[in-house]
């Protein structure tokens, strides 16, 4: 039996992810100070805390409405590039959740793919631009290849998490094409992109939570 994630379970995941992001504030802010203006973490933290404060309301919504509400809230509270990119991606995800009661492994793949497409279109970005996409893109690829290889669900989730993490770390070698790091003479080379770090954390936390539910 694979995992089945309801709206209430997803809200639990948000709670879990919010704690992970909260814990690593200093590290992410330091990364951001190296290439940006240092507010990425605080904006993400504020946005996730806002979602946590809405847990009762969110957990009672249908999957589709919950995803949409999360998206609208992130756009409004986080602001900036991260807000509109996460917000837009959740709204895109809400569309693939239409009529579904729970997220299973296949739907998780569809959600991640919808998010990836939306972010690429909105930011006119590709992998290698030193952005959050560099964590999400390989995560989607890992889902596909792991699925094709017939991996067990838990192995598949572990593979996705690992791909996001490695993708994020690989941004250190990249020259920034988007975001504030692109204004640096060295295009941020040598520094990990903080947006890819928070994306990798959020994907990793989602994989952890799904793994927990498949027990």
């Amino acid at each position: 039996m694979g995992f089945k994630m309801s709206s209430a379970d997803y809200v639990d995941y948000i709670n879990y992810a919010a704690k992970i992001i909260e814990k690593d504030g200093e590290y992410i802010t330091a990364l951001d100070a190296a290439t940006g203006d240092g507010d990425h973490w605080i904006n993400m933290d504020t946005g996730l805390k806002k979602l946590v404060s809405m847990e009762k309301e969110l957990s009672q919504l249908s999957l589709q409405d919950m995803m949409k509400k999360i998206g609208m809230t992130m756009m409004s509270v986080i602001g900036g590039s991260a807000g509109v990119l996460y917000g837009g991606s959740y709204i895109a995800a809400s569309k693939v959740c239409a009529g579904k009661d729970v997220i299973d492994c296949d739907l998780l793949g569809e959600i991640l793919e919808a998010m990836r497409l939306d972010i690429m279109n909105r930011n006119k970005s590709e992998p290698g631009f030193k952005t959050m996409l560099d964590a999400l893109y390989p995560a989607v690829e890992a889902f596909k290849s792991g699925k094709d290889a017939g991996l067990e669900e838990k192995e598949l989730l572990a593979l996705i998490k690992q791909a996001a993490d490695e993708g994020s770390k690989s941004t250190a070698a990249m020259e920034a094409v988007r975001g504030r790091a692109c204004y640096q003479a060295d295009k941020g080379v040598g520094h990990i992109d903080p947006g890819s770090v928070t994306m990798a954390y959020l994907i990793g936390a989602l994989c952890d939570w799904a793994t927990k539910l498949s027990n």
């Binding site: 986080i78 602001g79 807000g83």
Partner: peptide
């Protein structure tokens, strides 16, 4: 107005 150094969201 957005947050400090951050664009406002579309709703605003």
């Amino acid at each position: 107005a957005g947050n400090v150094f951050s664009s406002p969201g579309p709703d605003r």
